[in-house]
Write a protein that binds this DNA or RNA. Structure first.
Lengths: 175, 175
DNA sequence: CTAAGCTTTCAGAATTTATTGAAAGCATGA
DNA sequence: TCATGCTTTCAATAAATTCTGAAAGCTTAG
């Protein structure tokens, strides 16, 4: 029979694998999972021991997680060492991840596509018709995504679900 | 001034980089971009030359793209070699990518979380309270995602946008 | 000021992932 | 049947990414 620690380990390892599929490195995702499942904040040493990784690796993973806004550093008075904790609400967590991925992936892509369109438009219109059309389609796709993202971002965390539920009900009703 | 080929190359290279951030390999994403921007189907040879990659690499990238359902093989009569083309509608493309990523990333995660919950529940309820709660939260989060995904999947490609527009308008109106 | 206790940095090592290219496979047509 | 023209496979290699650990950096206490 599985012990609590074994179950935690399984979740942490799986989260790590998912992380690497998501362009987040394995360790970073593992540290995140560990903190997410931990009732209290942990210090670098504890993370090191739990995950059996080096001090340097812990330091880098934490730096990255902090820069994403997923982890916060806690100064506990009387304590010399720093403690770390993570956002515990899954919806808020999801929103943070969406925000960061948009910033790192979608925004640069939109810039690139806009640039390409501008260049194509200043070119002789004889060639590149199809390319112009397809790049414009891609651009519209991403821009629409950003629109939707912005609207959703303004909502309270878990109202997103209700919102979509409403949308689908309205749709069903009206079609 | 940039030529058409330079612009295409820029888009293809960027798409390749995005691919690797998305757990899709660089070459696979590049081949996809090349076909997406190409008015006519291309054969393996043409892809090889355009992207300056080996025959084997082209073959593997195409196999993967076909297994995702993003690329189709065309037998042109009278022609010995095979031609390849890709889904050209961006919304359909987005839906295919969503479907595949769900299958490869979300479904296994949900299974893992359900398994963990089952194991936690069959354990002594004295310890693991916090872990149980957090794993359940994660599970709910993913399951909600799947619900929404399924509802959206049933819609026509670009009605998704209108749908969300509606939802947001309803929301604004009622709050 | 120095020591102690902790964190960060980063060059090199280890690991993982992607790519090549030669060989094998497969279909067509002579 | 064999040759031709193409595709696929996969072991070896190359490239990219991640991780380690020793050294340097902070900060606080004495």
């Amino acid at each position: 029979m599985a012990t609590l620690d074994q179950i935690k380990e399984k979740v942490i390892l799986h989260w790590g694998e998912m992380g690497s599929l998501w362009g987040i490195n394995r360790t970073m995702a593992q540290v995140h999972a560990l903190l997410f499942l931990s009732d209290e904040p942990l210090c670098a040493n504890e993370i090191m021991e739990e995950l059996q990784i080096s001090r340097g690796n812990v330091s880098m993973a934490l730096r990255e997680l902090i820069s994403w806004g997923l982890v916060t550093r806690l100064h506990i008075k009387g304590e010399r060492r720093e403690y770390y904790t993570t956002e515990k609400d899954v919806w808020t967590m999801g929103r943070i991840i969406a925000r960061e991925r948009k910033k790192r992936e979608v925004d640069p892509t939109i810039n690139m596509l806009r640039e390409s369109m501008a260049e194509l438009e200043s070119m002789s219109p004889i060639e590149g018709d199809y390319e112009r059309e397809q790049i414009q389609n891609l651009l519209n796709f991403f821009e629409t995504g950003v629109e939707v993202y912005k609207d959703l971002e303004a909502q309270k965390p878990n109202s997103i679900l209700k919102l979509l539920g409403t949308a689908l009900r309205v749709k069903k009703f009206s079609s």
